[in-house]
């Protein structure tokens, strides 16, 4: 049977792996960052403009759209994984792209996963700006475009939180990257799938170590982004 406490061993192991810059851990960590940051980036590009459009334009069914987005916050990662798997598989409609079991496929899956979250939170962020402020801006003689730009500027902190939340959801999820990526060593293995694999191989301390690294990475990204923002 196992000796020692895997949690304590995990901490020691984590420190060892980080200090020695274990090449495999470094590679998995960088891939996690690459995939989830790319997904967050692409999702932000899509969600911010569309979210702003939804907020600024009145149209029929707007409430329904917002409610749908909010429902999709709870989109299960395995369902996204399954859908993307069926779409990207060789015999699926997008099979010709050969994206299944590649990091690009994983980026697409995570993007799909977090776009609703980012879009919905963008709408909320903009809604959070005082209506009086909007009138004031208009009263000061701003044209339509300037009004939009100023309101988005005002909402930037809330929008940033949305982006960080989206990144958090992306880097922490295991369901879709496992199905779409296939957890291939050296190609599509990321921190979360590596944790799942090591747990199934009873390497608990390695799993704990990777978990600590995952949290540290999330912390690092948060600090970096908030530093830039405070500039």
């Amino acid at each position: 049977m196992v000796n020692g406490n895997p949690i304590i061993e995990g901490f020691i192991e984590a420190i060892k792996l980080i200090v020695t810059l274990d090449p495999q851990v470094v590679e998995i960590t960088l891939r996690s960052l690459y995939v989830s940051l790319s997904a967050t980036f692409v999702a932000t590009l899509i969600a911010l403009p569309v979210g702003a459009l939804i907020y600024f334009y009145e149209f029929r069914g707007k409430h329904a759209v917002v409610s749908t987005l909010q429902t999709l916050y709870a989109l299960p990662t395995v369902i996204v994984g399954l859908l993307m798997f069926l779409l990207l598989s060789n015999i699926g409609p997008l099979g010709f792209l050969r994206l299944l079991y590649t990091p690009k496929g994983m980026i697409i899956a995570q993007t799909v996963l977090i776009v609703p979250l980012l879009m919905g939170l963008t709408v909320s962020a903009l809604s959070g700006i005082d209506r009086d402020k909007r009138y004031t801006i208009t009263a000061l003689g701003a044209n339509r475009f300037q009004t939009v730009a100023t309101i988005i500027m005002e909402a930037r902190f809330a929008v940033m939180s949305a982006v960080l939340l989206g990144f958090g959801r992306a880097i922490a999820e295991v369901g879709s990257v496992m199905i779409v990526g296939g957890n291939i060593r050296g190609a599509t293995r990321v921190l979360t799938t590596a944790i799942a694999l090591n747990t199934s191989m009873a390497n608990y301390s390695m799993s704990i170590a990777l978990g600590i690294i995952l949290l540290a990475v999330a912390l690092g990204v948060n600090i970096t982004l908030s530093l830039v923002q405070r500039r």
């Binding site: 967050t40 403009p49 990204v221 830039v228 923002q229």
Partner: peptide
Amino acid sequence: GAVLILLILAIFAGCTGAAP
């Protein structure tokens, strides 16, 4: 790749007010 995206994201985050 990771650093590049982080940078882009950071710059992007710093100017969320920019027009789409």
